[in-house]
Design a protein around this nucleic acid. Structure first.
Lengths: 158, 158
DNA sequence: GGTTTTTGTTAGCGTCGCCTAACTGTATCG
DNA sequence: CGATACAGTTAGGCGACGCTAACAAAAACC
């Protein structure tokens, strides 16, 4: 019933498990069931069954009672998800001026649903935005609106 | 198991059903099971059960073998979804220059997952973008990148 | 090294949302 | 009005994911 994303036949749920394994592995070499359960706020039994699914698809290296790592193909997907996340987060924080926690939650929710086109276009937009000195405008919390060049704006605010 | 959105305890799936009823109703007064099934590309039996759920929650007026309309509370949610959709679509098409069909698909997928903050910030951004004559930059298909002021850009392109 | 604590698994169940197949209700048309 | 078509419902099944409870393995501690 779950819709699946561009690059993968993985459900959004499985994508989350995979990304979580990847992140924990990046931090500490390998993931344990308990870590994953904690990160995703699910019970350990749920993790076990998810790992079996991911393992069957060749996305993680998993054997009962052993630690978990991502396979090459799993890593590719996880990194792709991570890139999507990063692009969204970057956009939300640095262009829209959203606080990092909210941006994190939103990015996490949205990363699974971007078309290739939208993804690429967002990257282009951010690149342009960051390289373009003249038209920097961003959210100013003091004003509660967007304004051009927050630095000059601050001066005008006095 | 489905995550639910800000304003409603409705699953994403139920949100889609509700929005569909609303849209059909807007177009032709009321929705029939067949219309809804066609619009969402599901079987009629699935529609019946979804309608029972929505009806139980007080979101649609539904009686077996009769046409369907949204209730007041259903309308509020549907309109809210529609606004989110519209904001996203607007942004995708008019700022990012994405083609309307892709933008439609993306908006449809994303509309259920926006935080209040992100939603409002996007509105603010678009408003600013549209009211701000100086810093208009958008995707130019001819170039394959973003550029400032597409009209002057076109002249330079010759 | 045996006991206790922690970690992980299994089995079984509930919910959601989809499906098919078979049936009922409604409407249309001679 | 009866036959036929179409619309809608019911019943039952399935897959994905979550949970609890009970058990097994591993690790840690005296």
């Amino acid at each position: 019933m779950e819709a699946q994303n561009t690059l993968t036949g993985l459900s959004e749920t499985m994508q989350m498990y995979l990304k979580t394994v990847y992140e924990i592995q990046s931090r500490k070499g390998a993931a344990r069931v308990t870590d994953i359960a904690g990160a995703l706020d699910v019970k350990k039994a749920s993790v076990t069954s998810a790992l079996r699914t991911l393992s069957a698809g060749g996305y993680v290296n998993y054997a009962p009672y052993d630690v978990v790592t991502v396979t090459d193909s799993g890593r590719q997907i996880a990194e792709d998800l991570h890139r999507r996340y990063a692009v969204l987060h970057d956009f939300f924080v640095n262009v829209l001026g959203i606080d990092p926690e909210t941006a994190d939650a939103d990015s996490c929710n949205l990363e699974h649903h971007l078309s290739e086109t939208l993804y690429e276009r967002l990257i282009g937009f951010i690149e342009y935005y960051q390289s373009c000195a003249t038209s920097k405008f961003r959210w100013d919390p003091a004003i509660g609106g967007f304004c051009t060049d927050p630095d000059t704006e601050k001066l005008e605010a006095e």
